[in-house]
Simulated scan of single mutants.
Amino acid sequence: MAKKDYYEILGIDKSASPEQIKKAYRKKAVEFHPDKNPGDKAAEEKFKEAAEAYEVLSDADKKARYDQFGHQAFDGGGGFHGGGGMNMDDIFSQFGDIFGSAFGGGGFGGFGGGAGQRRMKGSNLRIKVKLTLEEVANGVEKKVKVKRKIQAKGVSYKTCPTCNGAGQVMKVTNTILGRMQTASTCHTCGGTGQIIDGKPNHADAQGMVMEDETVSIKIPAGVADGMQLKVSGKGNDAPGSNSIPGDLIVAIEEVEHESLKREGENLHLDLYISVAEAALGTSKDITTVGGKARIKLEEGIQSGKILRLKGKGLPSINSYGTGDLLVHINVWTPKNLTKEQRQFFEKALTEDNFTPKPEKTEKSFFEKVKDMFS
């Protein structure tokens, strides 16, 4: 089922400012908050949709990629998400402060724990994955080894004695206006409501150990150099029995092809032919991302001619079709001639058939460049 447009979910347009985006999200979050709609699955889904939309549109980089590629910029299957993989704990952990005051500044039903207590989320990990042009064209599944922090076996936690598991400490101050009560994050547990009770000797102070894990990453066809994808839950763990792991951020690095040059979904190929091949016509084998292809060049073909092979480029990551392969014809002029070859070309200087006579239908270089980018 197709995902809803993020702007439509929040009821805003693409020109909305960051403050307008935040305001629209808060309105939706308050409207569909689980505490206001207990047991309403439809409201819960809308609550998650709003959080997903806000996670993307509130980030300038993610918003730019979404505007260009749509949902495919973040969702290639196999666990990639721009926010769609978020559960209630993710939402309250990341965005609880935006709408928390509407519910007394405390917990969020059964999702956020006790008053002020928050679930810790582990830090994200970042890796680069190199892809060939052929892998970009077809999509690929990569297996990578990731070194991540996980909770050590045998580590245990207990309720923080400072805040009694609340994650916050209350302070009462006498002022000229009367007694004022303020809440702040517990300095002992960092707001988690828990501290380490016991841990094995090989674990660090937070009860963590390093472990190598092989992660399978499904990369969709049509990704571009510099694009980032996310594998949920494959980052570092966080301390605490109710914590959630961070994410694995995958940065795409495109390996330069030997002969094909990329321009969006289109590909470009420089094809060099001899003067004789240009005059007589010929057939040539060329490289495409799908393997070798044979093309026919008519006799008298001119240098600078561009042949467009429809559908021989790269697929659109947003499923808008496939680009083309543009073959640029370059007639190679020999640099060293034999005596007989020189005599032939000297005689050709006076031949009327060798005098350049461009037809009116023949496009200029600048017109060809304009056509290429249109």
Rank of each mutant, 00 (worst) to 15 (best):
I98L: 10
S58T: 06
D89S: 11
H81K: 10
G82V: 00
F92V: 11
D59C: 06
D97W: 13
S58N: 08
Q72L: 14
S58D: 05
E52M: 13
G105N: 05
V56L: 04
F92K: 05
A64E: 14
A50R: 02
K63Y: 09
D75M: 10
F80S: 12
Q68V: 13
D59T: 01
G112D: 10
G84V: 05
D75Q: 15
F111W: 13
A43V: 04
F95G: 02
Y54T: 04
E49V: 06
Y66H: 04
N87I: 13
G76V: 03
A73F: 03
S101P: 10
A43R: 06
G76M: 07
I91L: 05
F99A: 07
L57Q: 00
G112H: 07
H71A: 09
F108S: 12
G70S: 05
M86P: 02
M88E: 11
G79P: 08
G107E: 06
G84L: 08
G76P: 05
Q68M: 15
N87Q: 07
G109A: 15
F103G: 04
D97T: 13
S93C: 11
L57V: 03
A73V: 02
F74G: 04
Q68R: 14
D67G: 07
F95A: 03
K63T: 07
G113P: 05
F80I: 06
Q72P: 15
A73R: 00
Q68K: 15
G107D: 04
G77R: 07
E45P: 08
E52D: 10
R65S: 14
K63V: 06
A64V: 09
I98K: 08
S101D: 14
F74Y: 06
L57N: 00
A43M: 04
F69I: 02
E52C: 14
F80Q: 11
G85R: 10
I98G: 02
A42T: 11
Y54I: 01
Q72N: 12
E52V: 12
S58F: 04
A42W: 12
D90V: 06
E52F: 11
I91T: 03
E44Q: 14
G114K: 15
G85I: 05
Y66P: 00
Q72A: 14
G113L: 05
D90F: 07
E52S: 13
D67V: 08
D97Y: 15
A115Y: 15
G107M: 06
